[in-house]
Write a protein that binds this DNA or RNA. Structure first.
Lengths: 218, 218
DNA sequence: TTAATATGAATGAATG
DNA sequence: CATTCATTCATATTAA
């Protein structure tokens, strides 16, 4: 259905009232926030499972110096196969590190902050901070920044050419995916047009709704 | 980008187009669904935690790529009505590039021709050629070759032992259909965990939940 | 509809 | 740093 909005003409100068806009914005934002909060809560709760609430056994929380199996941090575990004999050695499954949502957020934030080349020292710091939210190693952080840089750059290179949006083909009227390269920091406001609202909503404000949600769980 | 459109005050009987209405409905509905799923997951997890507490030491839960990444970070979904600029309403567009038959043929041909590593420049050329037969981006081409290479390698890994080995690749473009071996049902039971052997339980639980969740997204 | 497969895309890690 | 590899995720397509 390729329509170039030619018959529109007016181009929706205004199809929604401010009130409607406001309401919708709130609604969507609320949902987005709740979702995000839930994910975080879920993660936190699971982490807590580790320390407290161990009626059966205690299973050694990360003692000191060296954490047991740090490299098996964020095993994604797609399907059911997670039985890991926690005995002494079973290091047969080397899953790659998977940053948690919080970790990603932190990393993105730092990256966005403008440091293209974190020094060794900086890496250490970041690693430490991230370790508060999950297992990480300095190598992970290092790789992450490397990849991040490369990716950004390549995206830039690919996005440059004037992508003549010709007519849709009869076969694949698909649209090029546009990856968001925006790292919007915590701006607690929903300013901007409707375009922004979806983005803002998912990154802003997650303190208040937390309790609200906990109450809601029936 | 705040595109104004706020001080009109038309107040018509109909302030939203049907398309916009539809989009918003989908969006909100999607959020609602996600929230629902998350709440349920959280609740179930809480129950699990209560009954069988699995004090695993590490292994953060994986609310990551499965779904978390896709809607929290990814945002590949429709951008609300962020397409008012003459875009009209094609929110239900496909998100994944699907090469046309002709494009596939060309790609296969090039691939077979022996270019294992198309350079950036080569990518551009190929992209241009393909664009004569449908929409493509350089990223698409890049990914295609990446995937093609990996796939060839993998397929080759299995079928080779007792016949003409050291072969290049299958020349037939549509000869990639091959058998798939089952998932490795490697039941690795916890064998000899002397002490800490309560790690598996909770992990399994989480996996189930995760799986459940991802399955439900429809 | 559901399950299985094929395949485009995302990304951590490795290599030069 | 620049590319590439390997693994996994998400979705499109097809089969049961």
């Amino acid at each position: 259905m390729a329509e170039g909005a030619a018959e529109e003409g007016v181009l929706c100068a205004k199809v929604m009232t401010d009130e409607q806009m406001e309401v919708l914005r709130s609604q969507i934002s609320a949902y987005a926030t709740i979702c995000e909060q839930l994910v975080e809560m879920h993660r936190t709760m699971t982490a807590q499972q580790d320390s407290l609430s161990g009626p059966l056994s205690v299973s050694s929380p990360p003692p000191h110096g060296r954490f047991g199996c740090s490299w098996v941090a964020g095993t994604r575990s797609s399907h059911l196969f997670a039985d890991q004999p926690s005995g002494g050695a079973k290091i047969s499954a080397k899953q790659r590190w998977t940053p948690t949502a919080v970790q990603v957020r932190i990393l993105e934030s730092i990256f966005y902050h403008g440091n293209g080349t974190p020094s060794k020292q900086r890496i250490k710091e970041i690693t430490f901070e991230l370790s508060q939210h999950g297992q990480v190693s300095e190598t992970n952080v290092y790789n992450w920044f490397q990849n991040r840089r490369a990716r950004s750059k390549r995206k830039q290179a690919f996005a440059a050419p004037s992508n003549t949006e010709s007519e849709a083909e009869e076969e694949s009227p698909s649209e090029k995916k546009a990856k968001k390269e925006m790292h919007l920091h915590d701006s607690r406001q929903f300013s901007g047009g409707p375009d922004e609202m979806s983005v803002c909503a998912s990154t802003v404000a997650k303190d208040i709704l937390c309790y609200d949600l906990q109450d809601k769980r029936t």
